[in-house]
Structures are given as structure tokens and as C-alpha cells.
């Protein structure tokens, strides 16, 4: 897994590349917590280079979504490939998370909020 965080127009974008699973979920969770601790409240989780996610990875997304809601912010999951999307779909989380096709689209949506 490779993590990249950047902030533009007040929107924090966390790109998670490779695999988000039991081996590296805690690292990704800490990265998100770090962005929230910096005062961000609008987040994009960019999955465009994510190849694989398991329930341990979904847990990170769920924790991030709950944290975002608690601080009255917004979070968008962007750029899921077919395999990643299938896991989200099975979990039922697609129905309660906001998604976008690309990180740019998600950031644009959040910048205007």
C-alpha cells in the first residue's frame, strides 16, 4: 500500500494505492486521523489506484465516515475499480457512502460546499 495526502481548496484528498487490507489498515486509519486532526472536514478517499480491499479496509472507510459525520463534514469515495466496488456493494456501504467516478469530480463537489 502507498498513501498520498494533499489538500487543495480546503479539500483533503487521501490516495490509497495498492491493497487496503489487514496488513496495512491501521496505517491508513492513522493517515486519515492525521488529516482530521489537522482540522480538515471535507475528504476525498481516492481509490483510483486501489487494487484490492477486504473487510479490514472497509473498516477504515467506515471509521472515517463516522468520524466525518461526527464533525459535520463530508467524505466522498472516488475512483473505485470493479473489484473494489464489488466489495463495497456486498457490504451494503455503497448505499450509505457518497461516491464519485474520479477524485477530481469529488473534490469539485466538495469545494463548493
Amino acid at each position: 500500500m502507498n498513501l498520498t495526502a494533499k489538500a487543495t481548496d480546503g479539500v483533503a484528498i487521501l490516495s490509497i494505492e495498492g491493497r487496503l487490507d489487514g496488513q496495512n489498515a491501521s496505517e491508513a486509519e492513522a493517515a486519515f486521523a492525521g488529516l482530521a486532526a489537522e482540522g480538515h472536514s471535507r475528504f476525498v478517499l481516492d481509490f483510483s489506484a486501489l487494487q484490492y480491499i477486504s473487510s479490514a479496509g472497509l473498516r477504515v472507510v467506515l471509521v472515517a465516515a463516522k468520524k466525518t459525520k461526527a464533525i459535520k463534514g463530508s467524505l466522498i469515495c472516488a475512483g473505485m475499480n470493479e473489484a473494489v466496488r464489488e466489495v463495497f456493494e456486498m457490504s451494503g456501504l455503497l448505499g450509505i457512502l457518497e461516491t464519485a467516478d474520479t477524485a477530481d469530480e469529488a473534490a469539485g463537489r466538495l469545494a463548493s460546499r
Partner: peptide, 22 residues
């Protein structure tokens, strides 16, 4: 229970369900 909203959704419990699904 996959119908729960974000607040009620427990953090775990999906793993074995995925096994049954795939």
C-alpha cells in the same frame, strides 16, 4: 444487518459474510 445507517452500523462483522457471498 446491511440495512443499518451509518450511525448504527457496527465496525466489524463483514468478513465471514463475504466468504459466504463469494
Amino acid at each position: 444487518d446491511l440495512s443499518l445507517d451509518l450511525d448504527s452500523r457496527p465496525i466489524g462483522g463483514l468478513g465471514v459474510y463475504f466468504v459466504k457471498r463469494v
